[in-house]
Nucleic acid binder design. Structure first.
Lengths: 204, 204
DNA sequence: TATGTTAGTAATTAATTACTAACAAGGTAG
DNA sequence: CTACCTTGTTAGTAATTAATTACTAACATA
């Protein structure tokens, strides 16, 4: 009979990163609120007690996830925002980048929604909220450029346009959740993007 | 010293309805996943055990909430869809009706998202999914009318337009959750609606 | 008034949860 | 070789959860 093999010892830094990935992996298939430390430990391949060697409490894990999100999504969006001299092209690239990120990390939309739902202003919610704030800011900047170059409607309300941008992706995500997989994201995404463009563009 | 007064006895039907309302009331301020039978009982003014006099288990309560949602939201949307000979006006009325419903029942978006998140196909998720399916169907019908009367783009993809419609509201809800109240819904809603209209309308 | 049904309670249960404590072993500096 | 810090385990804890139990009061009606 074989004992379960002892895990190779890893540095705290590595274990922390593994647990953040474990949470995202689990969030892809279940409600974030229902993720337990036991499940996280099992995914990483450690005992439940080991979780608390690397995080003081469960909240700290979630905060790490939020920080991972900020550190990984925002640079992608930033880069996409500056990817073209044409603001509308940049906007399209942000859209694609965001969708690709969601497809590669299906747990992310659930995590975000889960945290925004919280009534209290935990550090976690603040982190997520400020991330979305920054995201919106980037969008508004690109939209202003589009307006300045007369590619967008001259009376465009950038804040509403940013809300609709994020909402359009949210709508696709909901559609995907209805079917139960992120496979549905791709086919619909082009049609929705065409509509968004039609909403803000200066029509001939 | 006074004992806590005995509650006036009510019929099972009334109690069930009260508990559904209690869940929606609680969902307005906290995650649906974290709502306990003890909290529900407290809101209704009964003991925790009494909850199971009227529902066989917790799942049955959530199913009742889903059924309440179908029975109350869909007729409103149906009526709004037929409220005007002008399809674009009807669409605007659906938009307003939906937003007003969300404002009066802030727990509803959370409940829907909570259920769609579930990986398994529970009766609850099926109920919510079919409700949204019907909703989409109504939207697509009105959009087809708009296309037929040449008020919408002739090459409009109705399914994408329906997804963007729901997404636009979802975006507003997210914005409101960022602030922590549904108060933010109203001011932004007009700007987002103008954009949506601009997306689907046949431009002069 | 007697009897059966319905709607309530308080107390308890088994399971699950986040978290802790005592101990073991790997790796490395002195 | 040894002292020590880090990373791991196992075996607990207290708290909370949905659900069940035994029992009681209110109500309807023959």
């Amino acid at each position: 009979m074989s004992h379960s093999r002892l895990p190779t010892r890893q540095s705290a830094e590595i274990r922390q990163a593994e647990m953040v990935q474990a949470v995202l992996h689990l969030a892809a298939r279940q409600e974030p609120a229902s993720i337990t430390t036991t499940e996280i430990a099992k995914v990483v391949g450690l005992s439940q007690g080991a979780v608390f060697r690397h995080f003081p409490n469960k909240q700290a894990i979630w905060l790490s996830v939020a920080q991972w999100l900020t550190a990984n999504l925002l640079p992608l969006i930033q880069t996409a925002a500056q990817s073209s001299p044409n603001p509308l092209t940049s906007l399209a690239n942000i859209y694609c980048t965001h969708l690709q990120f969601v497809q590669e990390n299906p747990g992310v939309p659930r995590f975000i929604f889960h945290e925004l739902q919280q009534p209290n202003d935990s550090p976690i919610k603040q982190e997520v909220a400020s991330m979305l704030q920054t995201y919106s800011g980037i969008l508004i900047g690109v939209l202003q450029q589009a307006k300045a170059s007369q590619q967008a409607l001259p009376n465009l309300d950038e804040r509403s346009a940013a809300t609709l941008f994020i909402g359009s992706i949210q709508g696709l995500v909901m559609q995907a959740m209805l079917q139960g997989s992120t496979a549905t994201l791709e086919p619909m995404s082009l049609g929705v993007w065409d509509l968004y463009l039609s909403a803000i563009r200066q029509h001939a």
